[in-house]
């Protein structure tokens, strides 16, 4: 399967040139750009690991691309996403988020149905990868 979180998951994986162009757009909007990585991509896993602090006051994507390279080298076989944060009043939240690295194989999620009263179901999503190994060893090739 292919996890389709983020802005551009339905497009072919972005090249570094395409990523830099998106980062450039974020910087032009005055957003701070941050890198995050995880091997637990559950849609309710809000807090991925931060790769350093959000990068404020950059003028050029080169700085982000350098960090992305370092992050990918240090964390192969994980999900890495770029988040752009807008501190403007009324937003003060992420304005853009897209995946820039995925593990080679994505086993996806199992839907667990707990049958309760009537025909009511309680749903839980479990990641196959998280279930089979502890953090750091989940997507080892």
């Amino acid at each position: 399967m292919r996890i389709t979180q983020g802005c551009f998951s339905f497009l072919p994986d972005l090249t570094d040139t395409q990523i830099a162009a998106q980062v450039n757009y974020c910087l032009e909007q005055g957003w701070a750009v941050a890198l995050e990585f995880t091997d637990d991509p559950h849609p309710r896993n809000t807090y991925w690991n931060m790769w350093g602090l959000p990068m404020f006051d950059l003028r050029d994507p080169a700085g982000v691309m350098g960090e992305l390279k370092a992050c990918r080298e240090a964390n192969p076989e994980t999900y890495v996403r770029i988040n752009a944060f807008d501190s403007t009043k009324g937003w003060e939240t992420v304005r853009m988020s897209f995946i820039v690295q995925r593990p080679t194989a994505e086993p996806g999620f199992r839907l667990v149905r707990q049958e309760t009263q009537g025909r009511m179901l309680r749903y839980t999503m479990e990641s196959y990868a998280v279930g089979r190994a502890p953090e750091g060893a989940r997507y080892a090739p």
Partner: peptide
């Protein structure tokens, strides 16, 4: 981190 932070801000300039 301090040096890298400055370098990142200066990139492109």
């Amino acid at each position: 981190p301090k040096t890298k932070e400055v370098l990142k801000r200066a990139m492109g300039g």
